[in-house]
């Protein structure tokens, strides 16, 4: 039995929606960051699905690049969050509002 295209796309869409909601609703910077990663990976899933469905390697190629860039981004982002915590002793979004003052 093969799973159809639509199932993959629905999963990808759900993942993206969860990530999006996480970014917009969660207050912990670390969780927001994870949600961002979730959105990226939802896109990756969609790309792999299309690649498989079309029988070409284009989508897969994209995914490699995105994973590489995301890895770099995670390293950077986590470092920033750690530094932020060291300085402010909090990573909650509503307390990180120095620009408004």
């Amino acid at each position: 039995m093969t799973i159809g295209l639509n199932a993959f796309l629905i999963v990808a869409g759900l993942l993206f929606a969860i990530g999006m909601l996480g970014v917009t609703l969660r207050r912990n910077t670390l969780v927001i960051f994870m949600s961002l990663e979730l959105m990226l990976n939802a896109v990756n899933l969609a790309l792999v699905t299309f690649s498989r469905y079309n029988g070409t390697m284009d989508g897969n190629l994209f995914v490699f690049f995105i994973i590489t860039v995301a890895a770099a981004e995670v390293a950077l982002g986590l470092a920033i969050i750690v530094a932020l915590f060291k300085r402010r002793e909090t990573i909650m979004v509503e307390q990180l509002n120095a620009l408004n003052r």
């Binding site: 917009t24 927001i32 979004v93 990180l96 509002n97 120095a98 620009l99 408004n100 003052r101």
Partner: peptide, 11 residues
């Protein structure tokens, strides 16, 4: 528009 809230910036 400049509210200092990360969520607002996302919107």
């Amino acid at each position: 528009l400049h509210v200092g809230n990360l969520h607002a910036y996302v919107y």
